[in-house]
Design a protein around this nucleic acid. Structure first.
Lengths: 150, 150
DNA sequence: TCCAAACTTAAAGTTAACTTTAATAGTTAT
DNA sequence: ATAACTATTAAAGTTAACTTTAAGTTTGGA
């Protein structure tokens, strides 16, 4: 199965311009063209693009992703570089996820704070028992979520 | 206790230029000045700046954060807007964290793939049992992490 | 008193990752 | 065959969040 740039764009939820930009940056070195110069994407290209999206989501820049693509073009002699890259990215994500967790707890506290302020009609209420409240919120967060979505 | 812009920068791990930029964008409307025009930050300013950093980490733009700061200046009549903002941000983070989890699992799979490729000396090995491997990796991910950090 | 360090402003520069534009060419449906 | 759609390129434009520069002013220590 082959796809036009517009079809690929729809499948991946990006614009054709973005795909051309990725191509220009060297992220898609194996995309075929018709004799008239129009790009035709195959399943491998789609898979590579999904990987590109994953690497982007993991925090890599276009430049870093191009480095990875260049390594894959060189074949088995660059396996270690690629392994190391993924290990670095794994560590990077673990750090980011831990930070996210902290930020999320701070936002949860603010949700409780403004919920209470809304009930009291003022932000000037006694919130000296805050740490306890935060712990309760953490424990009930899944429950709260269910309450809200039902 | 009062702090100079350089001290605040060090405490928060940002540059004085960034602090001046935040001030210019209206994120620090209550920072005092000496008669000669030099900024003096107090504990409230530090707390606001920590909140700004938290909001930024949660995905809000400087513009959005300014909106929040403007609301706080208006006092109790904007409690609902602020509560709604934090609830939106809570939902936003939950979505982002779920996406992150997916991306992380994909990276974990790639770590396993390239680890195996490294042992085999080639990426052209049989990985048809992949889904099973991914599940094992998920279950052992904490263990693996401990192994690596010890 | 004087030097260096730290502060001030306004304005211009930087960077990444697109996005838009303009001008043109190939493709599809009637 | 012609309109409407989709594709092509190169190049310029956009945006956010700073960062740097230039030209000065203020402050603290020897």
């Amino acid at each position: 199965m082959e796809y036009s740039i517009g079809e690929v764009a729809k499948i991946l939820g990006i614009t054709p311009s973005t795909l051309r930009y990725y191509d220009k940056e060297g992220l898609l070195p194996l995309v075929n063209r018709t004799p008239s110069g129009i790009r035709t994407f195959n399943q491998d290209d789609l898979n590579l693009l999904r990987l590109v999206q994953c690497l982007k989501a993991s925090g890599l820049s276009i430049k870093d992703i191009k480095q990875f693509v260049d390594w894959t073009l060189l074949g088995d002699e660059t396996i270690e570089e690629r392994r190391d890259m993924f290990h670095r990215q794994k560590a990077h994500m673990e750090k980011k996820m831990a930070e996210m967790e902290k930020t999320y707890n701070a936002i949860l506290y603010k949700c409780w704070f403004y919920e209470t302020a809304c009930n009291e009609g003022t932000t000037d209420f006694d919130h000296s028992l805050t740490p306890q409240k935060v712990i309760e919120l953490k424990q009930n967060s899944r429950l709260h979520h269910e309450e809200q979505t039902n």
